[in-house]
Design a protein around this nucleic acid. Structure first.
Lengths: 326, 326
DNA sequence: GGCCTTTGGGTAAACGTTTTCCCAAAATGA
DNA sequence: TCATTTTGGGAAAACGTTTACCCAAAGGCC
């Protein structure tokens, strides 16, 4: 069923149908309106938004580029995006990159060909590509990681340095003296590590590179990291983790090695993913407002698309969630 | 940059460019080919697949309708879908329904307007809508839940009855006599519960409805369910959970109430989500091949779209993962 | 009655592709 | 040399919308 057919059946022109369905400022008599609407209903007419998109150059679709949807942090962001988008009749194309630059580039290319109205990016590795290919015309907001090198993009982020200062300090306040730091290798500058260092400095504890392990943001990194660190020096009494997944790995290793948390060693995570409150022991962590970050990114993008509002840079606050690991 | 502009710059017709870029069986001289390709590269031409889609009636996009992306089981399926799709240059629109029929219907409507080439559905509540609105033309495969009432759709599913027979039997083999069953209210017939009952019958253990709790597929249900059951009868020595999330809730409640797993009571989950192997104690469960289910659904859909292969119904096998809760 | 305004629509050109024909020139064959 | 085939490529319609104009009829006003 096309609009043309509907028009013929209702005995009007396609222009009339189009204007009616999009309620454009146009005068249409009550009878005509009803007649057309009845035909639309009866034949289950579904507008073709591909054709529409071609004409109006808007697809009502956004792209979401992320490393891996299985990471609870990103699915939380994704849920925020979708819920917000559903309110506005928008769709969203998910693109997993597995932190692979090539995949990220082809995702971006695909989104471009599909004429999305905007894209939400996390953890970009393709700064070069973004600059060279002329993707500049498509509105972007970065959530989570903020590439400083771009102008004209929006960002929704947290103050990583501040938050890790917070998490490290919390351990320090609870009498930890030798605090390990296990996280992922940074893409850009290591703000997180800087926060850790700053907290240490404040308590006049010397920085010790033996206490640092950098891998990925996953459970395995936690497992391997803590094993690594303990094999060198066993007197660790606190662990700052780059995210909750890492913390889970750490907790797991402690459990298998009969090291008691929090009595012998304290652990703090980051993100506060869903599962963290159900672990045993329950994970103390810094809650990142992932859901809101997703929703916020959408709001900014839509506001920019519809009202030409400039894309801002917004910083969100995290909160300490006190549970049982410190 | 449009194809027309490229054609003009290269001094050929759009037809030539189109045929070249889609490498259609058409004779193009080496010189022309190179000349056009150079222009394409130089100007970073990106084909507009919206326009293409309008013309060829294919969008290279699939829809994925699911309850909630934050459920690890569904993100696992989603990852399988995406990885498989990425190989074929397809995109996928994610639609969360929150198990709400209205949301599901509007998701389906949106996918229809967006002219997706097919959709992958989980847990449909809108059988009526599917029948009435003329969505019949769009290829569908259901994964996870199989609505028996439809013809002409594909399915990728497991044998729920068999698998729950398996999980219950495993508890029975480990000397459990009073086994609770905590799961979600079924949309269709309760195959899972039937498997549980059958296993009980085989061991000549009477079915006791006090041992059954039906809620949602989430942690809270596990928590509340086991509390509920224990308030009535405390002599439960095994728990069959409808999924791992529920099992996590159960484990959590046992932990808070100082009931030892597996010595006092044994617990078995279902799904084998990522986190299950990192719990404390590690969860014994039945692993559902979620990733493959997603990938398989894509393969079927694509094979149907490209080669007109009929949509089949495939049943996948689950495997028991023995860990520490029984 | 003549003129102007409103009302209720219609025409047709775009949007950026694909694809069915079509055709000129060159090559081939006899 | 002439007819036929091959080679390389172009014209234009179509896909299903939107929208800038256009216009006839009816009503209002004097």
């Amino acid at each position: 069923m096309t609009m043309k057919e509907i028009a013929e059946i209702a005995g009007v022109s396609v222009a009339t149908v189009s204007k009616l369905l999009n309620n454009k400022p146009n005068r249409i008599s009550a009878e005509t309106r009803e007649r057309v609407l009845k035909v639309v209903q009866e034949y289950h007419y579904t507008p073709n938004s591909i054709a529409k998109g071609l004409k109006i150059k808007r697809t009502n679709t956004l792209g979401f580029v992320l490393p891996d949807i299985r990471n609870p942090y990103f699915s939380e962001i994704g849920k925020g995006i979708q819920d917000e988008l559903a309110k506005h009749n928008y769709g969203v194309l998910f693109c997993n990159t597995d932190n692979d630059m090539k995949k990220e580039e082809s995702a971006l290319y695909m989104l471009d060909t599909k004429m999305v109205d905007g894209v939400i990016m996390t953890q970009s590795r393709s700064a070069e590509y973004l600059k060279n290919s002329n993707l500049g015309h498509i509105p972007m907001v970065f959530v989570d990681r903020v590439p400083s090198m771009f102008e004209g993009i929006g960002t929704v982020h947290i103050n990583e340095k501040k938050e890790f200062y917070k998490s490290t300090s919390y351990l320090l306040e609870h009498d930890c003296k030798r605090i390990a730091y296990i996280s992922a290798k940074p893409l850009l500058s290591n703000e997180r590590l800087a926060g850790y260092e700053e907290a240490l400095a404040k308590y006049q504890i010397p920085f010790d590179s033996d206490l640092i392990y950098l891998g990925e943001y996953d459970v395995e990194t936690g497992n391997k990291g803590i094993e690594n660190i303990f094999s060198d020096c066993a007197n660790v009494d606190g662990v700052v983790c780059g995210n909750d997944l890492i913390a889970i790995g750490v907790l797991n290793w402690f459990n298998e090695n009969n090291i008691k948390v929090p009595s012998e060693v304290k652990v703090i995570g980051f993100d506060d993913i869903y599962i963290s409150s159900y672990l045993n022991p329950k994970l103390t962590t810094i809650a990142q407002p992932a859901y809101q970050m997703g929703a916020q990114a959408v709001k900014m993008l839509l506001n920019h698309i519809n009202n030409e509002a400039p894309l801002e840079k917004v910083e969100l606050e995290c909160t300490l969630v006190i549970r049982d690991t410190v």
